[in-house]
Write a protein that binds this DNA or RNA. Structure first.
Lengths: 155, 155
DNA sequence: TACGATATTGATATTTAAAATCAATAATAA
DNA sequence: TTATTATTGATTTTAAATATCAATATCGTA
């Protein structure tokens, strides 16, 4: 089994386990949203509105509130993360691996988002937390600036 | 002159220069808000609402919109920064020094905010940006977790 | 399989922070 | 002092997040 396929199964299991633990129910809608989100939005950062519009194409009867609530569920059980890049809209992103924590570099001109990971930053960060006796549950790093193509365009 | 007093003057100058450059006007209200914000909220993270309520005590005639707009002005001219810790409310914080970039560690239990600065993280970060040909204008790092006293309390 | 308890759904309403509007007023330059 | 232009404060508008609720779907159990 490829690592991607394995991860896919794990994600599904995490979700199913969470549903069982919290005594929730599995529904057609949750499956549809799960599949669309994790098949089409790997490595992307989608707003509730965008995902809703996308899903509506093939499933016109699905409501906005359901998409909204399901994305929150994904976040709660740890298979998606919520991001906020300062435009007032929450964005959701599938978590690809449990270990690799990545961050974002956002071009304030064109909105392009570049992801990056950096082991050194991660370890500095944990060290800082340890010093302050914090138990880290999450962290986010965002760099805002102008990308090279926007710099070109400005000239 | 103490470094703090010096910084105070610089901040005022930056603000005055910005007003001149943009052909804005200096007003009583802006002065009141400036003084309250930079005298009472050093090292803190205040919401518009909080600052408004505070200022109203001595200046009942000042409007919310003015406080809101003035904090945006401070941000625009680079003497304050806007933060968002995920509770849906923007917070403003006086910038203490132009060089020292600090970050935040937020306890998700009690809301306590610990500030920290780390040179190593800063330099890693610039390196990453350089690699991707990004011109950095700003960056933020937030660590979410549980502080030691909340951990104690849980037991 | 049918039943009953309980969670979910989708439409809609409510809440909230951010931003826009605008007439009255204040600041500035000539 | 006057004319011009920006600001103020009250209010409204916008838009995202969240809450509400009747109808419906899920699921364990008989």
């Amino acid at each position: 089994m490829t690592p991607v396929a394995k991860r896919k199964m794990e994600r599904r299991k995490t979700f199913n386990d969470y549903i069982a633990k919290k005594q929730l129910k599995s529904t057609k809608q949750r499956d549809i949203i799960f599949n669309e989100f994790f098949n089409s939005y790997m490595g992307r950062h989608v707003t509730v509105e965008e995902l809703y519009e996308d899903i509506k194409k093939n499933n016109p009867s699905i409501g906005f509130a359901t998409v909204y609530r399901t994305l929150k569920l994904f976040k709660e059980c740890g298979i998606a993360s919520e991001r906020n890049f300062g435009d007032g809209k929450a964005r959701y992103e599938p978590i690809r691996s449990e270990t690799e924590h990545h961050h974002h570099m956002i071009c304030t001109e064109c909105g392009q988002i570049v992801e990056f990971a950096n082991m050194q930053i991660e370890s500095c960060l944990l060290q800082v937390a340890k010093l302050n006796e914090f138990n880290v549950s999450n962290h986010k790093l965002e760099i805002y600036g102008i990308c090279s193509s926007c710099r070109e365009a400005q000239r």
